[in-house]
Nucleic acid binder design. Structure first.
Lengths: 171, 171
DNA sequence: AGTTTAAGTCAGCCTTGTTGACTTTCCAAG
DNA sequence: CTTGGAAAGTCAACAAGGCTGACTTAAACT
């Protein structure tokens, strides 16, 4: 129903995508509903600890790049330092994150998960990986590469950098 | 690096997906970064109006199913009625949404976008569709179906229903 | 010596989620 | 026909986690 935008079709022959507004709306809603599913399992675990998604995000990226600095984390997470600091403070107070003064540059703080922090990280990412693995399995191998290709294109270019090289950046 | 979980591979031969923890972590981060991109354009527009994502979601689904009830919207959005009510109230006050008392059941309110509301909806969805269209085009047709297949599997089953039949449900 | 940078703090605001208590309306069982 | 419960919506108050702005401290750069 509703076949506006059929004009999209004739690109050059190479990409003959018929993208109606309705198909795009489907894609939009897929993102909405899937993201909710994607965060549902961790959210349940976090609730038991009195934490929120902000804590999860910090824990995830500290685990991915141990020793990362606060500034580094800020640029990945795209929040203000005041916002991140509140979350980080509670994680340090609760003994999940270790914040060490930099050796080369003493202004910097390098962040690490404590064993306790690593435990929570494992629980969270395991739940999320399980859901993602099930989805990948059900959808099949070709779907997986398509999934990643579209999501990569959907990112802001600056963020794509963090996704691509997954590492820590210049130390 | 890090090749734990290679055990996943031998399913039956049909789906020979090598899903390492690292690949799954990539998928998780892809969701995170892509969702940010996905909401970035509407967020900018909403900010000009002093609205947030909650307003966007309400507007989107009222537009998709004109005349839907508050209860219906609640089950789609998955928030408390008090939370939705606040958003809805400002939208009605600002003249973007029309709330009509039900004819058959006067307890119900049926929701419609006013012309003004439809204008904002158009601006928001156009921005979002443009990003999605560009991503789809860049990734190619096969990627698009894979994208949707994986996202559909990632949803909670109850939500998949709303995604699939996209309509209003029983009136 | 003076400027810039990294990190952190305090205060206050907004959106958007929550719970609890309440009204209005509907419907069904006595 | 009334009464009692369920359903839809509203009001009030609180918490998490975004935000801005102003400021401090310490280290590094020039």
């Amino acid at each position: 129903m509703a076949d506006r935008n059929l004009a999209n079709a004739m690109g050059r022959g190479e990409s003959l995508l018929f993208l109606t507004d309705d198909q795009l709306r489907r894609g939009i809603e897929a993102m909405f509903f899937a993201y909710r599913g994607f965060t549902a399992d961790p959210d349940r675990i976090l609730q038991e600890y009195g934490y929120g998604r902000a804590h999860h995000r910090a824990i995830h990226f500290i685990n991915r790049s141990p020793g990362t600095t606060v500034n580094n984390l800020l640029s990945i997470l795209g929040v203000t330092k005041q916002s991140l600091n509140r979350v980080l403070r509670t994680l340090v107070e609760d003994g999940l994150v270790d914040s060490r003064v930099g050796v080369r540059d003493k202004r910097e703080r390098h962040l690490f998960l404590t064993p306790k922090g690593a435990d929570l990280e494992r629980a969270l990412s395991e739940a999320q990986r399980n859901r993602m693995r099930d989805a990948f399995r059900a959808a099949g191998p070709d779907a997986v590469s398509g999934f990643r290709a579209v999501l990569e294109q959907m990112m802001d270019p600056d963020m794509r950098r963090h996704y691509i090289d997954g590492g820590d950046g210049p130390r």
